[in-house]
Amino acid sequence: MILIEGLSKSYGTKNVLDRLDLSVDAGEIRAIVGPSGAGKSTLAQCVTLLERPTSGSVFVNGVDLTALGAAHLREARRRIGTIFQRDGLFARRTAAANVALPLEYLGVTRPEIRTRVGELLERVGLGDRAGAFPHELSGGQRQRVGIARALALRPSVLLSDEATSGLDPDSTASILALLRELRDDLGLSILFITHEMDAVVEVADSVAALHDGRIAESGTVVELLRDPSSPLGSLLRPTRPYLSPRAGDEAWQVSYRSGAVEPDWLLRLGTRLGEPISLLGAAVETVGGEPVGRAVIGIPAPAVEDLRAALDELGLDGAPASAVLRDAIVLEKVA
């Protein structure tokens, strides 16, 4: 697990990270999102102490990395697997030789390296491409090699810095599936730094938004998606343009408050209110096995009290869509 306490990093007078607190539990995939320049890369580099924090502590498995000398730090880094943006494979080494790097540094014997590298490449589904050079592999395959290398020393913590950025959608999906699988099989804690919101919803258990070097908002992905007032939730699943309501109808945005919403809630709502309800836009899905949904519905001149009560009974939150949208725009500027 990773525990970051009061982490600050400044370059000259510019504070890139400002007393940041963050934790990743054992077996948790925690995403960090934020616009470019928010300090994501600096955070990634501070976790492995490739950049030394100005102040604050980074605990990995209970050991404060900031307190370690060079030799001990080298040992501690071996317990953190790092997956780099654009894979970071050495161009003159084969896939196998790239995966072997951390083992070579550690001084593992040749036969052992050979066995372990074989296992690792098999693990990421590239058992047959051991002798291929990076330029002979696709972007997704290269990132798989990068993941195999990160796993070489059996780390308990994985740090992924924009691992899927620049990959095509299919490769991204397969890399994310692999990360989840590795988390489930090996109980890894994964700090997943990205700017891709879809990847977060796909892979992460929880997410924190980094803004101006601080955590602006944080929570589990499901909670955030169910909270209509959450700016981060709106960033994860932005409201798509929806149909105009019929003349006389009013548009309301509703969202699942919990997983206990019946799939036929729209019909039930109509029956309950005795009015025809129209569906103007909706996104319903399961995230990490939990139902999550947002919809915009059109209701003929609703009696607000009745409507709220009915929505509440069905396990839904609701607000006039115009107000929600207006808020979302304001909050997006903030976030």
């Binding site: 080298r74 040992e75 880094r77 790092t82 654009r86 970071g88 790097l101 951390p102 020393l153």
Partner: peptide, 16 residues
């Protein structure tokens, strides 16, 4: 330059 970061993160000594 990211090669050096990869190596350091993989537990390499400066000489390595």
């Amino acid at each position: 330059p990211e090669y050096a970061r990869v190596a350091l993160a993989s537990g390499a000594s400066p000489v390595q």
